[in-house]
Design a protein around this nucleic acid. Structure first.
Length: 533
RNA sequence: GCGGGCGUGGUGUAGCCUGGUAUCACUCAAGCUUGCCAAGUUUGUGACCCGGGUUCAAAUCCCGGCGCCCGCACCA
């Protein structure tokens, strides 16, 4: 299915449509409708099953707005602020810092000066003034002289700034995996292609923290997962992840683990394996924080779509937040704990001896190494502090390091779109969404064969019973039974339950399976157990 | 942001050049009918992206905005 068809299906059946539609829409923003919400819910549920249950992630739901200092530390304030110039003749846009030699480290002013003597590289026309854009949405927090705040450009920062808290809640243990599902905001210059490039989007993300000297190895159930890898150098190949790491095609076992885990998840939501590949970023397309990055890409009608990035972010983020905030973001390295004996001032003795001068002495020695017998200058003279002015303190100290982090980050909206495209099936007149049971928007369609003879009433009762049992049932009595099946097929409902005269007699219903259209007659209780996920 | 194309019920469209408030199909709703795969039939709901201009009169012509598609650039 192509882009146009997805959009039209989405609007017709209630998956999504442009936001603020009555006012002509707003580029880059979308509303998810009744069916879309259900569908998203099912994807999220499965994702949580993989990552929260499977991997034992702690969950976080961070605030969307953060202070300027946070994004200064994360690097987004400077990295998202690109200087632009435009050719006044041919209207081509250039990144000023790439156009000017050595523009990388220049200030805006220097760059502006340098550009004055330059012209357009392609047509030699004259260049416009420097303009800047920042991809972050800014806002004012509070009344009057409010503080400047920004909508987060990635959910990750919520986790990073929470790291000391989360580490404590994990009872100071590493590794530590934290997951978060939430929205992020980027003021894209030109959002295109609907859900694929939005200004407000949902990320499903894990930050998997670990100590580099203690990197988790690949769990046995993932080692054999076979992936199509496209490294930034050399030929693409298909191999299992254990070999890929062993042969250094993938440079980190935890990155490898997450590539395999991400693929397992993608297959479970119905992405066909043959439409999936893992492409390594070139050095020059890597984000400012990234050491290595592999994109999970799905083949669609508009090309390969990146739906997940697995990035090795090193210790970049924790280090910047640690240094910027002054809070401890490091953790002790296990096995490096050692007993340290050191001298500290005996303030009591000092006070008795030196009275009012004691405070001055404390100040003087603040930055000095404390040893009995040390000499200090005081009031023009030199005095020696004997052992009586010191106490021996014995403490345990460990080597402290910033943990590294590997981050699988899914774009829910892109995945949503890609599933719709790849799951769409056409067979003559018939067209349907061949979604796996686990992500079908509804568990079952409940339909009376006809509305007469109390069948509708009985069907409604059954529908309510299903809902009370936690089954996501959808009731439909309108139109011929074939039409109702067709409607259900189009939103990917996996089962259809039909209530007929026999139901009134013996309590059985027919269950129809979407893809095969096969029907079987079963007692309602059996049907109930088949419908759960 | 730039250049080109485009914007008509829920969906897909005709009409636009040559101004006179709109075509067709599907969908949807109500009824009849049928009773397990989009059937038939009757009735019905529902649209000219927004704003301004020209004109007696604008879906139609002109200008601006917004949105969509393609290309350029951008894509952490």
């Amino acid at each position: 299915m192509d882009y146009q068809k997805v959009s039209s299906l989405a609007k017709r059946r209630g998956f999504f449509q442009p936001a603020s539609e009555p006012y002509g829409g707003l580029a880059g923003f979308f509303d998810y409708g009744p069916v879309g919400v259900k569908f998203r819910e099912k994807i999220l549920r499965l994702w949580k099953r993989h990552y929260v249950l499977g991997l034992g992630c702690l969950e976080l739901d961070g605030a969307l707005v953060g202070p300027e200092a946070l994004f200064k530390a994360s690097g987004h304030l400077s990295e998202f602020d690109d200087p632009l110039v435009e050719c006044e003749e041919c209207n081509k846009n250039y990144r000023a810092d790439q156009l000017v030699e050595g523009g990388d480290g220049m200030s805006r002013k220097e760059m502006g000066e340098a550009l004055k003597s330059m012209c357009c590289p392609s047509c030699e026309g004259s260049l416009s003034e420097l303009s800047a854009f920042n991809l972050m949405f800014a806002t004012e927090v509070g009344a009057g002289r409010g503080v400047k705040g920004y909508l987060r450009p990635e959910t990750a920062q919520s986790i990073f700034q929470c790291f000391p808290w989360l580490y404590r809640l994990n009872r100071n243990k590493m590794p530590l995996a934290v997951s978060q599902i939430g929205r992020s905001y980027r003021n894209e210059i030109s959002p295109r292609q609907g859900l694929l490039r939005m200004r407000e989007f949902t990320q499903m993300e894990v930050e998997h923290f670990f100590l580099s000297e203690n990197e988790p190895s690949i769990p046995s159930h993932l080692g054999g997962v076979s992936l199509v890898l496209v490294p930034n150098e050399g030929e693409s190949l298909e191999t299992n992840i254990e070999n890929a790491v062993k042969n250094d095609i993938v440079g980190s076992s935890l990155v490898g683990t997450h590539l395999a885990a991400a693929q397992a998840f993608l297959l479970s939501v119905g992405i066909p394996k043959e439409s999936l590949r893992w492409r390594q970023h070139r050095k020059d397309e890597m984000a400012h924080y990234s050491q290595d990055c592999w994109d999970g890409e799905i083949k669609t009608s508009i090309g390969w779509v990146e739906v997940v990035g697995v990035a090795h972010r090193g210790d970049y983020d924790l280090q910047s937040h640690g240094k910027s905030s002054g809070v401890e973001f490091r953790v002790p390295v296990p096995g490096t704990s050692k007993t340290v004996e050191k001298w500290v001032l005996n303030v009591g003795a000092l006070g008795k001896e030196f009275k009012s001068k004691a405070g001055d002495i404390q100040k003087i020695v603040t930055d000095m190494e404390l040893v009995p017998g040390m000499e200090i200058s005081l009031d023009g003279g030199v005095i020696s502090l004997g052992e009586e002015f010191f106490k021996k303190e014995i403490t345990q100290e460990s080597e402290m390091v910033y943990p590294c982090v590997v981050e699988p980050s899914f774009g829910l909206d892109r995945l949503f779109y890609s599933i719709l495209e790849t799951a769409w099936k056409e067979d003559g007149e018939r067209q349907w969404l061949s979604l796996p049971k686990m992500v079908s928007p509804y568990d079952v369609l409940v339909a009376p064969l006809m509305t007469k003879d109390g069948l509708a009433e009985r069907a409604k009762e059954i529908c309510n019973m299903l809902l009370e049992n936690g089954i996501d049932a959808f009731y439909d009595e309108s139109g011929s039974i074939g039409r109702r099946y067709a409607r259900a097929d189009e939103v990917g409902i996996f089962f259809s339950m039909t209530v007929d005269h026999q139901t009134l007699e013996d309590g059985t219903v027919t269950l129809r399976e979407r893809d095969s259209k096969n029907q079987s007659r079963v007692p309602i209780d059996d049907a109930l157990s088949k419908l759960g996920r």
